[in-house]
C-alpha cells in the first residue's frame, strides 16, 4: 500500500510505526509539517502531542518522557536544533533513547529556509558538550524519511542513545510515493533503568552526574565502548562503483543529484560511480574504502566541506585526490555543475 506524500509527513508516519509515544516540538520552517501531522495523528492514537514553549523545553520534555521509558521525538531545523544541543548531551550522558529530526535549512544564524547541509558537523561530531556521539541517519527519499525514522527509534532503543535524522529542506518539502511499513517496531524492555512511578523501577535513577572523577571516567569509558559497539550498524549504498574511474559521494538530497549526474555521465561514456553513506554516525568507513579504493573522489555537498573532511578522514588510500563541488545559501547544486566538475577531474587525470 502506498500514497503520494510529503517527506515531512512521512517522518510522522514512520514515528507512528516505530511506536513513538510523544511529540514535543516548536515550529520552524522547513520542518513544521512534521509537527502538523503529529498534532493531527498522535492524540487519536492515544499518543501525546505538545507544542513546547521553545526547543530547549522540547528536548527536556523528551528527557523527562524518556526517563519514564517512553519514546519521544521532536523535529526542527538549524536554529532550533542548536538550542537542543545541551539536551542532546544530557540524553547521551543519561543514556536515554530519543529521536530528533533536523530538516536542515541555511545558516549560520537565521540564514534562510532554503536547503543546505551546514549542520553536518553539529549532528555528526556532537554539537553539545562532552565526550558523546549521536547516531545520525541521512535519508534521501520520502520513503527513507519514514523508514530511517523507524531505524532511528530502533537504534536509539538498542543503544539507549539519542538518534538524529539528518534531512534537508528538499527532502522535507518534496512529495514522492511512500509504501507504508508492514509492521510496528517491537518495543524493548526499559524496566532495568527507567523511572515510571512503580515499585519495580522505584530503585532506578536517571542522571548524568558522577561527582567522583573516577566514576565519571568509568561512565565515559562505558559510553565509548558503546560507540564502538555501534560501528556494526553502518549503512550505505554503492552505485556503479566497480569499474568507475571517479567516485562521486554525497548524502541526503545531494546523493540524488549525484545519481542523476552519474547516469548522465555514463551516457556520455564517462565511468563514474556513486558512494552514498546512509549512516553518518557510525560512518561507513569500510564501505567507503571498498567503493573508492584509490580512485579519485568528488564530494558533493551543500556545505563548506564539512562532509568532505569526513571522507578525507575515513579514506585509507595514500594521498587520495578529493575534490569538492558544493553550493550554499539555499542554492541546490545542479546536476550540470556536478557533471562539469567530474569531467574536469576525469580529463585532468588522463
Amino acid at each position: 500500500m502506498r500514497k503520494f506524500i510529503k517527506g515531512n509527513d512521512a517522518v510522522t508516519i514512520g514515528a507512528i510505526y516505530a511506536g513513538c509515544d510523544a511529540y514535543f516540538g516548536y515550529p520552524i520552517t522547513p520542518a513544521s509539517e512534521i509537527a502538523h501531522t503529529a498534532a493531527l495523528y498522535f492524540p487519536p492514537l492515544g499518543k501525546e502531542f505538545l507544542q513546547a514553549e521553545c526547543e530547549t523545553a522540547a528536548i527536556n520534555m523528551m528527557y523527562g518522557a524518556a526517563s519514564a521509558g517512553k519514546l519521544s521525538m521532536t523535529a526542527s531545523s538549524g536554529p532550533g536544533v542548536s538550542l537542543m544541543q545541551e539536551g542532546m548531551s544530557y540524553l547521551a550522558g543519561a543514556q536515554l533513547p530519543a529521536v530528533v529530526v533536523d530538516v536542515m535549512r541555511t545558516g549560520p544564524g537565521l540564514g534562510n529556509i532554503g536547503p543546505e547541509q551546514g549542520d553536518y558537523n553539529q549532528a555528526v561530531k556532537g554539537g553539545g558538550h562532552g565526550n558523546y556521539r549521536t547516531i545520525v541517519l541521512a535519508p534521501n527519499s520520502v520513503q527513507e524519511m519514514c523508514d530511517l525514522t523507524i531505524k532511528c527509534f530502533e537504534l536509539s532503543m538498542r543503544y539507549r542513545n539519542p538518534a538524529l535524522l539528518l534531512a534537508d529542506a528538499v527532502l522535507g518539502q518534496m512529495m514522492e510515493s511512500l509504501t507504508i511499513p508492514k509492521d510496528m517496531l517491537p518495543r524493548e524492555d526499559f524496566s532495568s533503568w527507567c523511572v515510571r512511578g512503580d515499585a519495580e523501577t522505584r530503585k532506578n535513577l536517571v542522571c548524568s552526574i558522577y561527582l567522583e572523577p573516577d566514576l565519571q571516567e568509568d561512565h565515559n569509558w562505558l559510553l565509548q565502548e558503546k560507540y564502538e559497539r555501534m560501528q556494526c550498524e553502518t549503512m550505505s549504498e554503492s552505485y556503479l562503483c566497480e569499474d568507475a574511474d571517479l567516485i562521486l559521494t554525497g548524502y541526503g538530497s545531494c546523493s540524488r543529484i549525484c545519481r542523476s549526474a552519474v547516469d548522465a555521465l555514463r551516457s556520455e561514456g564517462y565511468k563514474v560511480g556513486l558512494f552514498r553513506p546512509v549512516t553518518l554516525y557510525p560512518f561507513p568507513q569500510n564501505e567507503l574504502n571498498e567503493s573508492v579504493g584509490s580512485k579519485d573522489v568528488l564530494v558533493v555537498e551543500l556545505s563548506n566541506g564539512q562532509y568532505r573532511d569526513d571522507v578525507r578522514l575515513h579514506l585509507k588510500a595514500c594521498d587520495p585526490r578529493i575534490e569538492l563541488a558544493n553550493r550554499m545559501g539555499g542554492n541546490l547544486i545542479s546536476v550540470e555543475e556536478v557533471k562539469t566538475k567530474a569531467r574536469e577531474i576525469l580529463e585532468d587525470g588522463q
Binding site: 527536556n60 519514564a68 539536551g87
Partner: peptide
C-alpha cells in the same frame, strides 16, 4: 524514582514526565 536533568529544566523534564 529519581531523575536529574539540566540546569533550569526540572519543570520541562516534569512536563515531559
Amino acid at each position: 524514582g529519581n531523575v536529574a536533568g539540566p540546569h533550569g529544566r526540572a519543570a520541562a523534564v516534569a512536563s515531559g514526565l
